[in-house]
């Protein structure tokens, strides 16, 4: 018998790294994007079938972090897994992702996550060096080169996270 598991999954990353684009192309939602600017969060759903288990991800697309607008801790509470989104054309977004990662660990403990290096279609403006990539992999980050524009690896990243949740 197949089992359905509901999981709260946060989508974290600096301002304008493409979180909402990732979500709007690959998931199903009913809420308008204006919630993002007003409440700082918008919720969408993505269902994935992993073996016998259907993972029902409730995606909390949390407003990109800016210095004057911190992600509220309350939004992180109860999270089962998260996606860290880095903008490949802005190396500075790695630091933001790292900080969010630390805050998430403090709030929810050692839970599954994957890292999306987004905007991989913009190769001309690509800023991440091999050193950056190596450093992230050395930290044990599972990284995916993604593009919300072309759809590259997006489903793969979501599926990988679902697998981690199912195991």
């Amino acid at each position: 018998m197949s089992q359905v598991l509901q999981k709260k999954v946060c989508l974290l990353g600096a301002f304008a790294v493409g979180k909402t684009s990732l979500v709007s192309r690959f998931v199903k939602g009913i809420f308008s994007e204006k919630y993002l600017s007003t409440m700082g969060v918008k919720i969408d759903r993505k269902n994935l079938q992993i073996g016998d288990v259907t993972i029902n991800m409730m995606l909390w697309d949390i407003h990109g972090e800016e210095s004057n607008k911190k992600v509220p801790a309350a939004y992180m509470r109860g999270t089962a897994a998260y996606l860290l989104v880095v903008d490949g054309t802005r190396a500075s977004t790695i630091a933001a992702a790292r900080e969010l990662h630390e805050r998430m660990r403090a709030e929810a403990g050692d839970i599954p996550f994957v890292v999306l290096l987004n905007k991989s279609d913009l190769q001309d403006e690509w800023q991440l060096s091999d050193g950056n990539m190596a450093a992230m992999q050395a930290e044990g980050w599972e990284c995916f080169l993604t593009s919300a524009c072309s759809g590259l690896n997006v489903d793969l990243a979501f599926t990988r996270l679902a697998e981690k949740l199912a195991s």
Binding site: I30, Y35, M39, I43, D44, R45, M58, W60, P72, A74
Partner: peptide, 19 residues
Amino acid sequence: KDADLVSSMLTAIQDFVRD
């Protein structure tokens, strides 16, 4: 149909207001 989304959003609204 979308009760799960509403449920999460309601929680987010609670968190937001409290915050």
